[in-house]
Amino acid sequence: MNTLILRTVAPYLTALMLLFSVFVLLRGHNEPGGGFIGGLIAVSAFAIYGIACGVSAVRRAMKFHPMSIAASGLVLAVLSVLPSLFLGQPAMTSQWYAVPFLGTAIDLSTPLFFDVGVYLVVVGAISSIALSLEERAD
């Protein structure tokens, strides 16, 4: 779509939406949110960028092929299952480590990594579909 306003705004809008998607992803721990919905927000950010600046610009901005992103998310999710193996607990038992950071404690946990994996799978898979559909429309 070749409108000046959209093309000017799109990069900022995309950046803002991506930031928001990460916020939703991290919020998903104790409140509504999570990897799936965060991933969808990120995909819509990429889709807007694609509508404004073209699909090839999005592919350049994403750096990696969407399918690779999805696959690495899958690997991350699988890896997050494993730590309980070494502790003699059933698969997917959540592990928590509080990491001190600038005076507060940040809870790092396996569900967090699983959720990030879901986020990446959704971002990769859906943006791969969306980009190929947009490509066809061009």
Binding site: M67, S68, A71, V75, L85, A91
Partner: peptide, 19 residues
């Protein structure tokens, strides 16, 4: 863990072959 090993292995293998 043998119960979940086939699933984890194939999932990771599938992801690896996609990458």
């Amino acid at each position: 863990w043998l119960l979940v090993a086939p699933i984890l292995l194939t999932m990771a293998g599938g992801a690896l072959t996609i990458i």
